[in-house]
Amino acid sequence: MGSVAFRVVSATATACVCLSAAGCASGHEQTVNATAISFYTALEAERGAVACALLAPETKSELEQSSNKPCDQAILEEAVTNVGDRRRTEVFGTMAQVRYAGDVAFLAQFDDGWKVMAAACEPVPGQPYDCSVEGG
């Protein structure tokens, strides 16, 4: 394929990805990463209330119910700290995944910004991740 034709196809495909996958990384990736960084920074600093404010409502509710503790205490027991370097961020529509060397987090877009749906996730071959912190 000629370079001009390739550029046209690439540009079209990129435009389509931006439009239809709502995955224009530049748009959402930064805010997703900023939320994830704030979440893990709060956990490292043992500021449970700050971390809980970044949880999705269902996740926060589930964490409190399953632990029988206030969120700001439970989150410090369940979540992973020292997650290491960020490996990859992927955004599709209203959902995102951020992979660190030591953890995987799933985030969702809410009216007031991106929130953590699940964290402290372990991969299970052929199955969804097993997450210590997750919603219903």
């Binding site: 996958a21 599709f92 959902m95 995102a96 991740y129 997450c131």
Partner: peptide, 22 residues
């Protein structure tokens, strides 16, 4: 082509809701 890219985004959005890798 647009269906395939849109379907990819949509399918991955669902996979992420189910805590699966895209």
């Amino acid at each position: 082509l647009v269906q395939s890219i849109g379907g990819w985004g949509m399918y991955n959005e669902t996979r992420l809701q189910r805590m699966q890798d895209p």
